[in-house]
Design a protein around this nucleic acid. Structure first.
Length: 215
DNA sequence: AGTGCGATTGACT
DNA sequence: GTCAATCGCACTA
């Protein structure tokens, strides 16, 4: 793939793409629509003068009444950011090893959100390679824990407004996504049959098995 | 205060 | 393909 080869030949290249912050009113009010909408949009991390950017290629929706949603049993100290209203970061720690980044949805007081599961590195690739300890472009943010590690995301960013100037925000698309595929969510044991995972078909940057990418 | 487990990852057969 | 590591949190008492 030409795009990938270009990246590999220029690993330290510091491109600066034209990306503007998404306005809160641009976010779909439905969490499922938001999960689809975010495919192809960008996630931008500003840290000590550097800018990291990735193109979101895989998401999952977590809904009210959904037993797999962390807010299923109401608000707790951990999940409170899910209830902040649309466009806030909900960051949590899981398996003793990984952070996960979600975008809160709907409206204040409602605990729904979208998990960002994978991104295509765009800017700050050399910095991501350092955080991740690998040079392989497709492995930098392929999977939710890897995405958080590549972007240096931890609980200090929990609750951050993703539609405001700050250390982490959502940006416009730099390239329209290919056709969007759907599947069941990955790693879920309850409400496991619901089709709430979305991804850019054909992207080498998505997680999951071949089997899940056929739909 | 104790317990069970998870929206995963990396190492290994 | 399989599997153990690892720890914060929610739940029970």
């Amino acid at each position: 793939m030409a795009l990938r080869d270009d990246y590999l030949e220029n690993p330290a290249k510091r491109v600066k793409l034209r990306i503007r912050r998404l306005l809160r009113r641009e976010l779909p009010l439905s969490t499922i629509y938001l999960a689809r909408f975010l495919i192809g949009k960008t996630i931008v991390r500003e840290i000590s003068g550097a800018r990291l950017a990735g193109r979101i290629v895989e998401t999952e929706a977590y809904l009210t009444g959904d037993a797999a949603c962390h807010a299923f049993r109401g608000q707790t100290p951990r999940n409170k950011s899910l209830f902040l209203g649309p466009g806030h970061a909900y960051v949590y720690f899981i398996y003793g090893s990984s952070f996960m980044l979600n975008v809160s949805s709907v409206k204040a007081g409602v605990g729904e959100g979208v998990l960002l599961r994978a991104a295509e590195p765009l800017e700050g690739i050399d910095v991501m390679q350092r955080y991740r300890g690998t040079d392989r472009l497709v492995d930098l943010a392929r999977g939710p824990g890897r995405l958080a590690e590549a972007f240096d995301i931890d609980r200090s960013l929990d609750g951050v407004d993703l539609c405001s100037r700050g250390p982490l925000w959502l940006g416009t698309s730099v390239r329209e996504p290919a056709r969007i595929g759907e599947s069941v969510r990955i790693g879920i044991n309850v409400d496991a049959d619901r089709v709430l995972r979305f991804y850019e078909r054909g992207s080498p940057f998505i997680s999951g098995t071949r089997k899940l990418n056929v739909s």
